[in-house]
Amino acid sequence: MEENTETKVEVGSNRVYELGYLFVPGILEENVAAEATALKDLVLSFGALPISEEYPRLIELAYEMEATINNKKEYFTTGYFGWLKFDLDPEKVAALHDKLALSDKLIRFLLIKTVRGSTMSSKRPYGRDTKRRTTTKAEDGTTVPPAEINKEEIDKQIEALVSEEVAA
């Protein structure tokens, strides 16, 4: 049976986690990096070891989100989305979660178990893994190779059609 890498406990009792977060769009563009660093420092203060990360970038949210920031209900349609992958003792995760929940800079965050390596798969075409068929089958079942295309001839024909239309 295939090994479930998601639930596998890492060596040294640490486990790989990923924190995805959405910063409020009110943060100035130049301060976003500083906020991301502050968030990272907060995570590292729990004894986490960083693995990889992506700095936040402004994204359009798929739907309007509601969040209570400083005891005030606010609505957001954009936000700075970033993520951070790190190694952490599973016993400290709950404390980290509670600490993150207090932040007034975050609209939402997602703290999940993941695997160490990159989980983003490269872009592959879906539904066309095989090469496009270039031959057609004749009525008798034999394959017919595609007809040769003479570009000059086609250009001439197009020009002729255009001149006909202009004349008309």
Binding site: T5, M120, S121, K123, Y126
Partner: peptide, 13 residues
């Protein structure tokens, strides 16, 4: 496609 872990950020897929 040998994808073992489906990432929530992989919107294309």
């Amino acid at each position: 496609n040998n994808i073992k872990h489906i990432d929530y950020k992989d919107l294309e897929i």
